[in-house]
Write a protein that binds this DNA or RNA. Sequence first.
RNA 1: GGGGUCGUAGUCCAGCUUGGUUAAGAUUCUCCCUUGGGGUGGGAGAGACCGUGAGUUCGAAUCUCACCGACCCCA
Length: 477
Amino acid sequence: MAKAPLPDKFKQFGEWYDLVSEKAELADVRYGVKGFVVFRPNLMHVIREIYEALERHLIASGHRAMLFPLLIPYKNLLVEKEHVKGFENQVFSVEKAGGEELEERLFIRPTSETAIYPMYALWIRSYRDLPFKGFQSCAVYRHETKATRPLFRGREFLWVESHNVFAKKEEAEAQLKEDMEITRKTFEEFALPFLPIEREPFDRFPGAERSLAYDVILPDRQVLQSATTHLLGKRFTAPFGVSFLSADGQRVVPESTCFGPGVSRIAALVVSVHGDEYGLVLPFKAAIVQVVIIPIRNEPALLEYALSLEKKLAHAGYKVKVDEGSETAGEKFYHWEMLGTPVRIEIGPREAESKVLTVTRRDQRKRESVPEDALLNRLASLDQEILGELSKKAWGWLESNIQEASSKDDLLAKAKGAGGFIKFTFCGREECARDIKAQTGGYEVRGRRVDIDEKHAASCTWCGEKGVELAYLAKAY
RNA sequence: GGGGUCGUAGUCCAGCUUGGUUAAGAUUCUCCCUUGGGGUGGGAGAGACCGUGAGUUCGAAUCUCACCGACCCCA
């Protein structure tokens, strides 16, 4: 068999990713502005499906869609001190319009707190207005100075941002759990794993009281943060003047949370986590074409049979396409494998004669024979099987890349090794985290897991001070 | 912030050291024939103001300077 078109993603992830992005026609980097790429139709399909899933789960849990303007008055940025510090060096600003200097300077949202909270201050008047749960699906803009890579880090990225307001702290705390659940359900639909990790106090979103992040290990064993949710307390509601009258007539400043699943990054995960040396591997939900039918020769009888099958599958609700192109069969196989199409049906004289079809699943690249009258049942089971097996494989990779360090020496040795997560007992001190990062060549303290309770030792594995938690270390994007 | 590499068809790139005919090749795209169950083979055609600007020269993709852009490494 011929050589695979792509390198091994576990050995040369950067090269693999750039090539698959080009060959599967995902992103086009030729637009010519650094950090800004064009999303092509194959990628937009994945993006739209991710949006569809996130929005469905948000709405089912009581959120409502909104859309705030892209441009925000500059003075709004100055309202919350920590927030300004975090973003002022990253914002794009607009000073002119129609050739004239603007009376009021505007900036392009790097995130929308400063656009949303002034309006919340107008909308929220009574305890009856709470909880207020809203979200918007949009692009945000940050002038990143680090190296950019399509979908992983750009100066424009797509996300959903949810901004919720609650009367009571417990309700806000509970929202963090709900956000985690929404992330879990969405990721499940794309067979993606993640670890929910609470960030250390010194590593929070500017202005947050608590920050949870959803970390995934990529094929190069570096960690990618795909989404975050933050407990903001009164950090934004108070300075922006959001308050309400309680049932007993008291003026109260409410609590708030925000949740930001990075849609471009989740798409990058679908590509990176499932793909192989033949290209993308997509679950049914993410595929723009779910079943491709390939007539092995350009003969009218074969084409006719292929089209009748297409009609049958389309009627059953599948996204199906007959490849009528003039390329040879082998060329078409490679093409559709690169695009990650989950199922391929080959139609040759044998199939047309016997009505027993040759069906190939993309994830395993294995052929099987399926009688035509059993095809719909088989496709339905393949949908679930492929999703299940992709998920199992993805979780297996994540879990097999978590190690635990028993001592400082052990930690140093493991840090020199393959990468991935290293668990250790942490004292919680920023100084200690800085020291670890400096001495391990870039391992950062990500924080502690919130989905399970993990026992920690009495003293910090690194510095020997009192241990407070079992924390995860990793090199991050 | 510091250091380095590179800009030539849609894509990958040769040529530059030592200036000189029509800028070579592969891939891609179009058409014809052939082939077809894992990237068939052949033929014809299309596609490049050689990143931009200036300088040196009889003559610049090639030498010089400036600018713009991209990529990589280190902090």
